[in-house]
Design a protein around this nucleic acid. Structure first.
Lengths: 232, 232
DNA sequence: CGACTGATTGACTGCCCTCAAATAGGGTGG
DNA sequence: CCACCCTATTTGAGGGCAGTCAATCAGTCG
């Protein structure tokens, strides 16, 4: 584990988390952080463990999920560069992580331990605002996901999830928006079986509105899938 | 609208919202509140409206839901005496309500306007802690609901919802735990069609583990339904 | 050129929703 | 006290979405 403190925001990274802070505040916050490397399949926090650190993903990708009683995983959201996790640490002092977060790619993160969190929260109050803002967004996204599962068919959920994922992990390529997702990953995020995911993707490929490769999906246009994902 | 301020916590009411506060703090918070009566079907807050007040249900029952694009209602949770809503008001200054809350019974609530909220938040920091705690619980419950919809059958969801509802709105009566719920209300909360709800309830009545009346359900024992609602 | 992981396709099954129609409880006004 | 109405509830028949299982094909990497 690297323990070098980060004195500058890694270039190219922008996080809504820092939006309300002044430049000196950002500097102070970064000075208190430690930079770590993460590898695929590494568990970054485990639900139920006592929350001892707040962290921000700098590079790579992570998946937040909850483990169901029987062992199934309930996918909740992707973590992409700029996303903050471990908010329980700062939101209510002695708390436990609500969800498990696992790295799915090589990457790095900035971490603050419990003491740093509390010191920083006192030092700059706008940090608390930022945390609350992130939590609110999380809450909102969760309600949306619940609505999708209740009101939308498997096909519409898939289309919707393609759009959501595209905004998070999509890169604009020559042929359209490229997503590094396997069929299985997409199926899990949309809460659909692997087979229905495959079938719908094949159908859309036949219609010519997307192109599939092994572990990669290329969308010709986002708005098309937005309209498929809409109700009615 | 009554505008009398509440100087004492209504007798019998206890809310986790006040748990971390000292007696004088509670007094100050209550002094800033206004007591209002509410009637059935009254909308207490509407999703999307700008969040201008925080409120606490004193008596009665409310339902929190989100309106889906096509008009369907996605039930999220019951509000019972002691529950706090409109947290967006205090969590991030200029915000909008995330959900709609509607009274389902005659009742009353204590409300704080935006100015009071901000003044109180500065005055007693433990209030922010309380708000964060409520939000965390809300988040946790939401993830549980999502897991239930993803992993449990209609029958298990119904059993689980009976248990959840029993803890919130159940009264201990002569024959067991009494719930003031119509079949339709239960169906909506468990995200099941009215007909499946009726069928399962009839089946359970035949098995002798509950008794139905018009608009009322009496559970012989909670633990029985807890085991039905468990996975596997 | 294996070996492994990801993707595909077909057949089958089943849970639960939809729709239709009838029944019963509870309150109200005559 | 009874007739009436409105709402809640019940029950059956039918159908469709999507999940499960099994077997095969294809792309990558060593």
């Amino acid at each position: 584990m690297k323990t070098a403190s980060a004195v500058a925001l890694p270039s190219g990274l922008q996080s809504t988390f820092f939006e309300g802070l002044t430049a000196p505040e950002i500097k102070a916050v970064l000075a208190a952080a430690k930079l770590e490397r993460v590898s695929p399949r590494q568990i970054l926090q485990r639900e139920g463990d006592s929350a001892t650190r707040l962290w921000l993903l700098v590079t790579g990708r992570a998946a937040a999920y909850r483990v169901a009683d029987e062992g199934g995983k309930l996918f909740l959201r992707w973590g992409v560069p700029g996303d903050v996790f471990g908010l329980a640490t700062i939101v209510r002092a002695p708390a436990r992580y609500l969800v498990t977060v696992e790295a799915v790619q090589e990457g790095s993160l900035l971490a603050w331990d419990l003491a740093s969190c509390q010191a920083l929260a006192l030092q700059c109050p706008s940090l608390s605002k930022a945390v609350n803002s992130v939590v609110s967004n999380y809450l909102d996204g969760l309600i949306d996901a619940l609505a999708a599962r209740s009101f939308l068919t498997a096909e519409k959920r898939l289309a919707r999830m393609l759009v959501v994922s595209a905004r998070q992990i999509g890169r604009t390529g020559r042929e359209g928006i490229e997503l590094d997702l396997t069929n299985e990953q997409l199926a899990v995020t949309a809460n659909v079986s692997l087979f229905t995911a495959t079938r719908k993707l094949s159908k859309w490929q036949d219609l010519g509105i997307l192109k599939k490769h092994r572990g990669k999906i290329v969308l010709r246009s986002l708005s098309l899938f937005e309209s498929i994902g809409k109700p009615i």
